[in-house]
């Protein structure tokens, strides 16, 4: 019995230490989506260890509140959430169970990326008859790369508060990030110039911010309403509209009902482009910059 107890104690000790050594003196940062994790890595540099819960190949609205995420949050020094109810179906219940005072709403270790973002499509009236409409507006603002600047500032402010001794480093990283981003924005604007004014259809309102930034016009969505699957009648109307407007591209994330998207594209003479909702959704978009390099080039190539 004694030996058995000693064995159990040893195993538990090893587990506990295994769970605690890997971050070293770095602060542990958990981001809800990979897009935010990328920015956090650029701002935090070697002072942080960043993990993301969701990548661009999955719908960030519909994650399960898996206990393994709860364990991640329990050990986090900083939690970066998108906000705007993107994660409302799973993050609150995880934070409730995580027993981590550092990341409770309003705590110094909680970053809400949405703070300071100019939100689009803010509803004037809330009714579920309109589908999954979010009271703060469309939460997919990370699809506009220019918003990364505001997000980076929000992240930098929290990192400086959590590790004040590294403030100078974080601020320098923020300046470097902004410069890098400004240059990249010019590059992406240049890439996208030939398709300025092009009409597109998206499956969900995921790319509204991207379209506004690069002058694309979203004339409709495959979904009848946010989160509501299209009926045959709706699809017929949409296809007619797509033909009339001369829609060239349909953008759909890999997790959508691609058969329906392909049907609408085929019937209207448009091309279906499968695009991850953000970073980490395919091998080409491993970080923020490579993701938008890939997305802009792919859209332009597909429009030819």
């Amino acid at each position: 019995m004694k030996q058995f107890l000693v064995m159990i104690m040893t195993v538990v000790t090893v587990w506990v230490s295994a769970a605690h050594v890997d971050a070293g003196d770095k602060i542990r940062v958990v981001a809800t989506i990979e897009d935010l994790a990328c920015i956090a890595r650029d701002i935090g540099g070697d002072a942080v260890m960043v993990t993301a819960i969701a990548g661009g190949a999955q719908d960030p609205h519909f994650l399960d509140a898996k206990p393994s995420y709860l364990v991640q949050l329990n050990r986090a020094d900083v939690l970066i959430e998108n906000g705007g109810e993107l994660e409302v179906g799973w993050l609150p219940v995880l934070v409730n169970g995580a027993r981590n005072r550092k990341i409770l709403p309003g705590s110094p270790g909680r970053v809400t990326a949405m703070n300071g973002i100019a939100m689009l499509e803010v509803p004037t009236r809330l009714s579920r008859a309109e589908g999954d409409v979010h009271p703060y507006g469309n939460p997919h603002f990370t699809t506009d790369p220019a918003n990364a600047e505001v997000i980076a500032q929000n992240i930098c402010a929290v990192f400086c508060a959590v590790v004040p001794t590294r403030t100078a480093k974080f601020r320098a990283n923020l300046v470097a990030f902004k410069e890098h981003l400004d240059a990249a924005l010019k590059r992406w604007q240049g890439t996208m110039a030939p398709v300025h004014g092009m009409k597109i259809v998206t499956y969900h309102k995921t790319f509204s911010y991207f379209a506004r930034r690069f002058g694309l016009e979203v004339v409709g969505t495959i979904e009848a309403k946010p989160g509501v699957a299209p009926s045959p009648g709706y699809l017929a109307e949409l296809v007619a509209k797509m033909k009339a407007e001369g829609v060239k591209l349909v953008l759909a994330e890999p997790f959508r009902d691609l058969k329906v998207a392909q049907f609408a594209a085929d019937k209207s003479g448009a091309k279906l482009l499968i695009t991850p909702s953000g970073v980490g959704g395919n091998a080409d978009g491993r970080d923020l910059f490579s993701y938008f390099d890939w997305l802009t080039k792919t859209i332009v190539a597909a429009a030819k």
Partner: peptide, 21 residues
């Protein structure tokens, strides 16, 4: 940035720990 809906140094209403859709 385009005029933000909320200045970045004013905390937005934080989604509460129980806030659903």
């Amino acid at each position: 940035a385009p005029p933000p809906t909320a200045p970045s140094n004013v905390p937005m209403p934080q989604p509460s720990a129980s806030q659903p859709s």
